[in-house]
Design a protein around this nucleic acid. Structure first.
Lengths: 137, 137
DNA sequence: GCAATTCCTACTAAATCGATAGGATTAATA
DNA sequence: TATTAATCCTATCGATTTAGTAGGAATTGC
C-alpha cells in the first residue's frame, strides 16, 4: 500500500504544478485545498525540498516552488524520495540493493524472479510519467 | 515492500511445485529447506489451504499439496490471498475498491491516475505468470 | 494406543505510520 | 526596529501492522 506520505506528497506536487507559476505556494494553502493535515504536510514538503525537487522561500510570502519544469520531474525520482525503493524486495532493488539473509542463491529464487518483472514493469510506468502528466486534468 | 508472509508463501508454493508429485509435503521439510520459521509457515500454509490453492492431509504422513496443476495457478490469485490488494491505493483496486475519504473526485486525482497505470502493469505480470513459471530453475 | 502431523486460538515484542507539539529561524513590511 | 507570517527542526506519541511464539486440540497411520 502507498503511504499517506507519498499520497500527500504527490497531491501537493500536483497542486504546485497546476498553479503554473514560479510564485511560492504556501503549505497552508495546499493543506486546505487538498485536505491534508498541515503539520504533516510541512514535513513532507521539507523532505521534497531536501531531495532537491522543491525549492523554498522562508518568511512572509514564502512557500514552496518546483526547481524544474514539471515535464522534467520523473516519477522514478519522486517515488524514490517519498516511498523509498520501488522494488518490492531489497534483493531486486536497483538503488537500494541488499542480499536476502535467507536466500542462498538469488538466481534460483522464485520470488526474486517474479519481483524483477514487477520492478521492471513498474519502473517503466514511473520512467514514462512526469509531474506534467499528473497535473493534466 | 513485500511482506515476509508473502515471500515465504511463494517460496513454499514453489518448493511444493518443484517436487512434481502429488505426495503431501510436510511443513517441517519446507521450513528446514527454505529457512522459514516453522510455526509461522504453518499459519501461512493454512491461509493458502483455506483459499483453495493448497489441499492438506492431516495426521502421520500428512502435509500439503497443490489443488491444481502449477501451470494453472496464477500469481494474481496467489498474491491476492497472501498480500491482499494488488493496487497501491484502495480507490484503484479492482477486488477491494473503496473510495478515498479525502478525495472529492477520483477523476481529477493525480494519484489515482498514476496508480491505475501501476496497477495495470503489475496485473499484467501477475496474469501472465503461473506457479509453473516460478518453479522452473 | 502411540506418534506424527495439521489445525486453531491467543499472545507479544518490535517496527512503522500518521500524525501532533512546540518552538527556532528567517524574511517582508509597516 | 518591531511585528507578523512563513519555513525549519526536533521530539514525542498512539494506533496499527508485522513477524513471529506458545500451547495445545484434532486427526490419521501404524
Amino acid at each position: 500500500m502507498l503511504s499517506k506520505k507519498t499520497k500527500y506528497g504527490l497531491k501537493a506536487l500536483t497542486f504546485i504544478a497546476r498553479t503554473g507559476s514560479d510564485v511560492p505556494v504556501q503549505v497552508g494553502e495546499i493543506a486546505k485545498s487538498e485536505q491534508i493535515p498541515q503539520k504533516f504536510l510541512e514535513s513532507i514538503l521539507l523532505t521534497l525540498r531536501k531531495s532537491g525537487i522543491l525549492g523554498s522561500k522562508k518568511g512572509k510570502h514564502g512557500g514552496y516552488y518546483l526547481r524544474k519544469d514539471p515535464s522534467e520531474i520523473l516519477m522514478t525520482e519522486v517515488m524514490r524520495v517519498l516511498e523509498g525503493p520501488i522494488a518490492m524486495v531489497q534483493c531486486v532493488s536497483l538503488n537500494f540493493y541488499e542480499k536476502c539473509d535467507d536466500c542462498p542463491d538469488e538466481h534460483l529464487c522464485s520470488v526474486n524472479k517474479l519481483m524483477i518483472q514487477v520492478r521492471d514493469s513498474t519502473l517503466e510506468v514511473f520512467k514514462n510519467t512526469t509531474l506534467k502528466d499528473l497535473s493534466l486534468r
